[in-house]
């Protein structure tokens, strides 16, 4: 295995330079084999397709089915819920929580992604300098991911507690007043945002770092010979070559951020006064927040999130097509 690597790597690097510079798509030359190669391609994909069908189809259909019927706890058990079409969705749209939840979801998602990505990219570029200990420190950045969210979110609410939290102790020590991070409507969304950005940074760091690693060094060397400075190298080389990885990182970040509920639920329960209620929290609260679950509206809110992800997925694919016209 190691032998193969050593042999292929130099080739790949040399080839990648060529590909990056000319970006010339390889001419296709196999109309006669088309049927066979399509079959081969599908053979590679087939296990995942079967896997998706087995494990995702049922929950997805189930979620849709829950949202178009009127389930009570009783009909959840005996399966006799009447079909109500889009009534649950209309009720969700009309609900007083809809407006605030939409705004909170948008603010939470956009700000989370912007900060996670920017910080993650900055750190990836920084760690890419490869100084002593860089690999170890970079590995340590992943430690927050080893903790169950229950623990990390609880630790954050511990630190942000109004009276006994270390953050307020620090603020008071430097002369600033007490901030009710989790218990005032003005700050609760900011607090959960901070915690969520903290959790998301390692993800962005690691993926973008691997992206940087796959940019061949020869490209930089060539640019240096042309007299490019650090910024120019970043904007003209690093950024464009990082684009496919950056795009998927952003897209995944979006999907994961839309879904976030544990952190918010543990820290604020979406409160106070709905000030940190996102769609994911709203859905969870309807379904599991009280001792009487309300599955149908919960599923409807959940499906709105799926639709949102759907829209962004379409945008991503369009963007990908435009960048890669082959």
């Amino acid at each position: 295995m190691t032998v193969t690597q050593v042999r292929t790597e130099p080739t790949s690097r040399g080839e990648q330079v060529g590909a990056a510079q000319s970006a010339a798509p390889t001419p296709r030359r196999r109309p006669s084999h088309r049927a066979r190669s399509a079959l081969v391609a599908w053979a590679f994909v087939a296990p995942v397709v079967v896997y998706l069908a087995l494990f995702y189809a049922f929950p997805l259909i189930r979620n849709i089915e829950l949202s178009v019927r009127d389930y009570t706890v009783r009909s959840f058990i005996d399966g006799t819920a009447p079909f109500v079409g889009i009534d649950n969705y209309l009720a969700v749209f009309r609900d007083a929580t809809f407006g605030p939840a939409l705004l909170n979801t948008a603010a939470f998602t956009v700000l989370s992604i912007v900060f996670q990505f920017a910080i993650g990219l900055a750190l990836a570029v920084f760690f890419f300098r490869r100084f002593p200990l860089s690999a170890t420190l970079r590995a340590l950045f992943l430690v927050p991911w080893l903790l169950p969210l229950l623990v990390s979110a609880s630790t954050w609410s511990w630190m942000l507690n109004s009276e006994s939290g270390v953050v307020n102790a620090f603020l008071e020590a430097v002369g600033a007043g007490q901030i009710n991070w989790l218990t005032s409507p003005q700050f609760s969304l900011i607090s959960v945002l901070i915690a969520n950005i903290w959790i998301g940074v390692p993800f962005n760091l690691v993926i973008l770092y691997s992206g940087l690693q796959s940019i061949p060094e020869e490209v930089y060397e060539a640019a240096s010979l042309d007299g490019a400075n650090g910024w120019q190298k970043f904007w003209r080389i690093t950024f464009p070559l990082l684009r496919p990885v950056a795009a998927i990182t952003l897209l995944l970040g979006l999907v994961y951020t839309l879904k976030v509920f544990d952190i918010i639920w543990i820290m604020t329960r979406g409160g106070p006064a709905e000030s940190s209620t996102t769609f994911a929290i709203w859905s969870y609260r309807l379904g599991f927040g009280s001792t009487l679950p309300d599955f149908s509206p919960a599923a409807a809110v959940g499906n709105l999130l799926i639709v949102l992800a759907f829209v962004f997925g379409l945008l991503y694919i369009r963007m990908q097509r435009r960048l890669d016209p082959s």
Partner: peptide
């Protein structure tokens, strides 16, 4: 398929 993969991740964990 890529698209389905993306959507698949949006299904809530509890579901």
């Amino acid at each position: 398929l890529s698209f389905v993969l993306l959507i698949a991740q949006m299904i809530p964990g509890i579901i």
